[in-house]
Design a binder for these strands. Sequence first.
DNA 1: AGCGGCTATGCAATCGATTGCGAGAGTGAA
DNA 2: TTCACTCTCGCAATCGATTGCATAGCCGCT
Lengths: 350, 350
Amino acid sequence: MRQKRITLKDIARETGVHVSTVSRALDPVERKSITEEVASRIQAAADALGYRPNRIAAGLRTSRTMTVGVMIPDITNVIFPPILRGIESVLEPLGYASIIVNTDSERDRESRLVDVLRDRGVDGIIHAAVLRSDPTIARAAAEGLPVVTLNRMVEDSQIPYIINDEDAGICEMLRHLRDLGHREIAHLAGPQDLSTGQLRLAAFRNAATSLSLEFRPELVVTARRFDEQEGARCIRDLLASGRKFTAILCANDRLALGAIDELREHGIDCPREISVTGFNDMPFLDLIRPRLTTVRILQHSAGQTAATVLLQLMNGDTAENIPTETILPVEIVVRESTAPARPDGPQQPA
Amino acid sequence: MRQKRITLKDIARETGVHVSTVSRALDPVERKSITEEVASRIQAAADALGYRPNRIAAGLRTSRTMTVGVMIPDITNVIFPPILRGIESVLEPLGYASIIVNTDSERDRESRLVDVLRDRGVDGIIHAAVLRSDPTIARAAAEGLPVVTLNRMVEDSQIPYIINDEDAGICEMLRHLRDLGHREIAHLAGPQDLSTGQLRLAAFRNAATSLSLEFRPELVVTARRFDEQEGARCIRDLLASGRKFTAILCANDRLALGAIDELREHGIDCPREISVTGFNDMPFLDLIRPRLTTVRILQHSAGQTAATVLLQLMNGDTAENIPTETILPVEIVVRESTAPARPDGPQQPA
DNA sequence: AGCGGCTATGCAATCGATTGCGAGAGTGAA
DNA sequence: TTCACTCTCGCAATCGATTGCATAGCCGCT
């Protein structure tokens, strides 16, 4: 039932040459070392028979599989698909395929998956998982496997990383709020075991001082997950604390959405009474009212950049040509969830 | 720099047996044909050396790569990631990896990608792309490659398919609208070159007659894409036609969201004046007001089912054990975008 | 003691493509 | 005519694991 595949041997038999000659004739770089007439005869036979190279066999011999592994926390998180398309857009035209794995941000799953990818002989790994430390990936890189990380860096390693200029994003956003007259600005921080959560909190602190706004630890609440429920919970806690604030800078869009919902539950209007900002600019955000002011990250180009750097690594470019650190610009998108601070000062809600 | 991999040969040398013996000792099913003492000595050596089997080499010999191809239109479309997680949840524990490719619903890209997957020796393909006909995949299946399709079927073929019971979903939704008193119900249909668009329109027609509601072709408008812009455009056309209607059943959530927005632009309130329903129940829908009444599809289980059927195919189960057709149940989720038809009859907006 | 039969293990081919090396043909110059 | 050199192509090893077949050894039975 199943057709036998056409191999080099078949073409060799057909054209009366040796399989090695066929191999060379079909290899664009070796082709020049073959008489043009022979080469085109072989090419014709290959086309006629419908030859398709067996990448498995080639991979065994060359130990290059033209496959890369991509590790992300969870594909159902809307920020990752655009990254994957970005990666694909540079790798696929070059004949690479990618194996995508979800780590669910679990450490043992993460290291197990690194091994799975290595067993499959991937030529490199793009690691967009966000756990704050991972010995397995560091070891893989140290053993010579090309690795780049996205959105995070592995300490004490030479692994190139691509990050978004989140510091600048946070800082711009804080400036936007300040320029609107806000002074008591809360921060709804993300989980501190995820690099994004940690980095954005640090950025908030730095930005506050550099903008001559006082950093107030009591106005920081930390979410345990990046979701709406936690956003809402944090707002409840914040309101319960009785502290005054007129704006909330959230570490991600979903926290912001949860926050706005919870404020509404308490009869507090966003943006009239309290301004709220997000981070990521996830899809469909402009369908949700009030339309969220947020920091836009160029996920697609982040993916492209990661893939490009990985390619350099896999091609064995000289180290000095490979950027260790790439910082991608972000931009703030001002929509409807931010407004001038009320002139009569913060109204502490009931 | 790069460490040499440990191979069977290394273990053989270490333990003083032949590599074939090592191979058998490490293969759970062959292991019983080896003296327990030898087997465990080999196992110990393998562990000590940190042996990891080379799947490429094994794949070459056995022509099983433990890899499946998954074809979808576009990973950034929110309905696909849950499907992928569903597939992964059954395949990954068994040692399979999947290569995911985006077809962008382009025919030539689609057939090219089928070949890419075959070149890589995938053991099977789950085909969730939605073009209405594709000779390449049919040929692949005819040549013996295990294939299952998701959300669509390939005509004139034995390819098993998994679909959601969209007919039932449309019918239930129409019944819901009828029970609310609606009689003039428009259908905002999806692109007719995509199977989902076509099927849902057909289902709408059937449901109308079976519910003794007149099917009115002039109340059907067809979108060119499944997005908000097209939803809005269709509503403009519908309003411009001057026809009366009190409810709109949309072929997908995004069309519905675009429709509601456009109605609002015209000063028409949903659901008070016109009810609107969606299809898919995409994530974050409950954050958008009015919260959309829609048909929920169990994407995750669809993925699981597709993977399970593919496994049967790949394991060469006898044909009669393999379901050709699997229809998964759907459910309607009633939220805020539907309300009773106004007792004074449809108000034709200006 | 001899023989049948079974079991544990070794041997070697194999999957398909790649590649270093060498041989033969062809060319040009002396 | 011959020698040196180049160009094209064939030969065979190789990547690492799998597997059908062969064989050596052992057991038990008569």
